[in-house]
Design a protein around this nucleic acid. Sequence first.
DNA 1: CACTTGACCTGTCCGC
DNA 2: TGCGGACAGGTCAAGT
Length: 288
Amino acid sequence: MPELPEVETVRRGLHRLIIGRSVARVSHDTPKSFPNSPQDVHSFVVGASVTDVRRRAKVLMIDLSTLYTLVVHLKMTGQLVLVGQTRFGAGHPNDSLVGSLPDKSTRVTIDFVDGSQLYFNDQRKFGWMKLMPTDEVPHMTFMKKVGPEPLEADFTSWQFAARFTRRAKTSIKAALLDQTVIAGVGNIYADESLWGAHIHPKRLVHTITAAEFQHLYTELRIVMNLAIDKGGSTNQNYVNAEGKRGSYMDFARVFRREGLTCPHCGAEIIKFKAAGRGTHICPVCQVV
DNA sequence: CACTTGACCTGTCCGC
DNA sequence: TGCGGACAGGTCAAGT
């Protein structure tokens, strides 16, 4: 569920909260969630301080002063939550979605010297946190294959359309979800942007016109920028670095709104399966 | 190579 | 109340 806007929201929170903090101790459970050896953790994490928090696509990178990086993918149910002096510093306590930590979903706990803790929680264990030298991160298979960042200032609608030519015979929704085409798009913002561009998700890529690609490019950027502004979408259990919900779902036009009316034409929103995912459209505004 | 499907997990919800 | 099954969705391996 965490897509580009949610991961970016976590990045901004962590960037504000943990840079400069020094690691006192690390504990973790399964190799699946954290595959590195205790020796590596002791050598390159304990005693290190956080120097930067970066994002590429849906992947977070916590850079350490040892020139090692904790690379994190939240997949569907991952959370990175800091508990410490600043946790209740802002916002309303009712915004919080997490109880006391650690809990049964906690996979990794990083204790900082100042007494705060960073928890990596992941109910379904699809996510992971990996330690590797910072200069090796760009050489990960994922990093080499992933497409361009859709919100970068120099990313044009021409480049956007050109990325899809390789996937001419698949559906536009499957292509949007393909991380090697465009980085960071997931199920929520695929549905929202396709609604905004009046494109049916099952349309084949080669039938999409240049004007429609232009429209989709614009809608995708509008929707993702709005979602970042709203702190992301909390559909199930996404929370930011302070354990708080995002509010984009209050602004969603079709996602998870089956049976409600289309904000554009008033028709009833329907749900079906496309590209293997639950898919929401207005059957009047979006036709095959 | 392009494309689709199933596997990875756990919790929740729905019908019986 | 319990119980089985569908569903949630990001990515990769394995299939056609």
